[in-house]
Amino acid sequence: MIKIWTMKKEAAEADKKKPKQSAAQIRVQKDMDELSDLPKTIDMSFPNPEDLLHFELSITPDEGIYMGGRFFFTFSIDASYPHKAPRVQCKQKIYHPNIDLEGNVCLNILREDWKPVLNLHAVIVGLQFLFLEPNADDPLNKEAAQDLRENRERFKMHVAESMRGGRVNHESFDCVLAA
């Protein structure tokens, strides 16, 4: 005879073990809902759609010095979100005053100016802005910043060269031209 009650209890136990979403996950789910009308210059991809905490973002600027390139970033968000900012890394080696050769990004709202009221949308807009207005005052790649400050035209040429996968100041860069 099957012990119905034991089965029922086991089923109830199994249900209890089903994980609930953490506060960080719920917040990210809300953030994602706001990303319904991203500009066509922005694209997101999810290696695992079950996991909203790790994804990739690409920016394809349609104006400015970096027009013609396509830039990929990885986002990783941990349980401390939104107390702490998401971690953002550029996947390519690019020539940019605010992004170093390892892909670290200098964007104030990702570090010292992060606030829990900010969200993923704000970070994405901020990143996009870096490609429209590279900022020589907050350099992470000092040579690129100096280049931009001294001679904007020469800097533009260097950016174009680097985006083709060429060399700038003896450093070779990844080809980032949009297909």
Binding site: K18, P19, K20, Q21, Q25, Q29, M32, D33, E34, L35, S36, L38, D43, M44, S45, F46, P49, E50, D51, L52, F55
Partner: peptide, 16 residues
Amino acid sequence: LRTGSGSLYMQAPRAL
């Protein structure tokens, strides 16, 4: 809609 183990249906962003 999501559960603790994954996404059921997400309206945005496009890829999701």
